[in-house]
Write a protein that binds this DNA or RNA. Structure first.
Length: 201
DNA sequence: ACGCTGATGAAG
DNA sequence: TTCATCAGCGTT
């Protein structure tokens, strides 16, 4: 479908996009394209599922107990990648939101593979396109993202997000966050309805 | 439903 | 230094 041969001419979203209320950003990210430069080419996926983690009053947010070496990127300016190691074997990718000093971020939970699919298959060591990137740990593996990219500027040219489809409100589903034990009452998970690449039913 | 896996941060 | 915890995944 979409031709990404001219992707290097595409423009990363500006920092002002991220300097907004986190729920606004989480919703607006649906339909946008996550891209990573890789060996003269690009690995790209359409964002289809996100979750918001907002401030020190959100018990599920990593910043709930103040600034630590791990979460300090969340306290910095918006538009940077917060990537952390979890469960002894996976990484998760977040984008920092709101103003510097207020710790908040959006977890990218799933994308739809768009370009560089052979690279994704290689890093995931599997062939099912359907299951390449339908989870936060899976998509980091598919994009080969790890701690070396923690703090990366998403307004740069290495790892960035660019404009994509406009998703109508009627196509967006909003649910409880998943995979956490506290803060489950907040409905801060957003996903594209009927999309086959979201992390769960 | 369970085991894998190791960084993280709080407690001692 | 120990220890419980953990924004996940694959297999059972």
């Amino acid at each position: 479908m979409t031709n990404f041969s001219a992707i290097s001419k595409e423009i990363p979203l500006r920092r002002s996009f991220y300097k907004e209320p986190t729920l606004t950003v989480a919703k607006a990210l649906l339909g946008k394209y996550l891209a990573r430069k890789w060996k003269g080419s690009y690995i790209v996926g359409k964002i289809v599922e996100t979750e918001a983690y907002i401030g020190e009053d959100d018990p599920a947010c990593h910043a709930a107990k103040g600034k630590t070496p791990r979460n300090e990127v969340m306290f910095g300016p918006p538009g940077f990648a917060y990537i952390y190691f979890i469960y002894g074997m996976y990484y998760c990718l977040n984008v920092v939101t709101e103003s510097e000093g207020f710790p908040a971020a959006v977890l990218i939970r799933a994308v739809e593979p768009t370009a560089g699919i052979e690279h994704m298959k290689h890093f995931r060591n599997m062939d099912s396109i359907q299951r390449l990137t339908n989870g936060p740990g899976k998509l980091c593996q598919a994009f080969n993202l790890d701690r070396t990219l923690n703090g990366e500027d998403l307004c740069g040219s290495n790892l960035f997000i660019m404009n994509g489809e406009t998703i109508d409100d009627s196509q967006i589903e909003r649910t409880r966050r998943v995979g956490i034990k506290v803060g489950v009452n907040h409905h801060w998970r957003f996903l594209i309805k009927r999309n086959a690449f979201v992390s769960r039913l």
